[in-house]
Design a protein around this nucleic acid. Sequence first.
DNA 1: CACCGTTGTATCAATGACGGAACAACGGAC
DNA 2: GTCCGTTGTTCCGTCATTGATACAACGGTG
Lengths: 231, 231
Amino acid sequence: MDADVTPELRADDVSFGVPDARLLRAIDDHGSVSAAAAGLGRSRARATGRLDELEAAFGSLVERVRGGASGGGTELTAGAHDLLARFARLQAALSGVAAAEECVLEGRVTAVDGELATVATPVGALRALAPEGADRVQLSIRADAVTLHAPDEAPPAGGTSARNRLTGSVRAVERGESVAHVRLVVDGEDGQAEFVALVTLESVDRLGLTTDSEVVATFKATATRATGLVG
Amino acid sequence: MDADVTPELRADDVSFGVPDARLLRAIDDHGSVSAAAAGLGRSRARATGRLDELEAAFGSLVERVRGGASGGGTELTAGAHDLLARFARLQAALSGVAAAEECVLEGRVTAVDGELATVATPVGALRALAPEGADRVQLSIRADAVTLHAPDEAPPAGGTSARNRLTGSVRAVERGESVAHVRLVVDGEDGQAEFVALVTLESVDRLGLTTDSEVVATFKATATRATGLVG
DNA sequence: CACCGTTGTATCAATGACGGAACAACGGAC
DNA sequence: GTCCGTTGTTCCGTCATTGATACAACGGTG
């Protein structure tokens, strides 16, 4: 089972999505709507109409010329480049999240302050963003949100904005080409949990992480999400 | 302009999305496909067919009974509950990312090691995950990925897996109900950048953050995304 | 037995999205 | 003037998706 995500940027009830980004990029490559549409296997009339629709919501995206030495053509505006850049950032961020490994913990909400909740879990009380009214929840802590520290150099609680902090031991270091998944075992009074952190190989080496190493893991409350559990 | 996201879980070329989650939840609420479909304004025949399709890909999701004291009915299996829980986690994580403020920096890739790149930016060299072949890039650093530290208590570079570290000063603290956006100004040799971190009010108070406070910001290379720039 | 309310199954019609096709117009080049 | 390759605009036919509808079957209840 894989997670997939379809990103969209919305303005005035019009959504800019993957096919739209493809169209703009093809226009940039070919210099015309005709060639772009043909290259994408789309009808030119539809592509033109879509550009009109997008422009009505997002502002000027293309400059179209009919006639001339080359017969005419279409170029992207700076606004289109900005929109494409923003879309690319969103897509990269969302794809990264969809692909990330996570540690899932069940827990009970014991205190609430606005959207922030304190959740009792097998490995202790953790802070997370939670929906209103949730009681029994699951916490998701993604591998790219977990920072690892050498135990004697971990930041003191009062000196950092990372509100969650656990001590555990390394169960495995799975090295990739330039990053590694570090799997931790954290023991608590009410149980045990396995965490995973995605860190650079440089961090693995600098921290001297190997099986059975002791390590401190920190992660932000504002990057930790709780969702309600039913059934 | 708002970012929107459509999450999906995929298995065997079948995608489980928002309408599917709605259907399962309605079945759980009503105890029958008939009532669920009616409540959602969908055709029962289609809902039944969709369940068949989803079960073929994701395994048993419902137990259906025809006849009986109540005429029959349908209940969710444990597998369905697990699927819904996973979908909820994915949706929460993606929605959080789509809604997060970001700091965007333009830069140039100066070194590459697998998917990890070193990028020269106005505020110095930063580490990020980058697509292959990118030269001129934009870095996106989300507010929920930035950890703030008191300058005298920031973790030393060798003792933490957070590979990016900058010193800046607080320009503004925008307090919400339980979390705050802390805006930082970071000066570099080649320019200046404004960062934003999303932290709890507790962190603001513990770190004593106020306008002009000096602060150290750290963020992981594996949570920092670079995307190519054109045009 | 009839009735109830559900599930199992099949069919029909409507709708929206889409590509294909075609005519008109433009501004250079020859 | 003709030709070229583009844009501007309109219309047609196809296809996938969907809700509505209807008959059959089930297992209790009275």
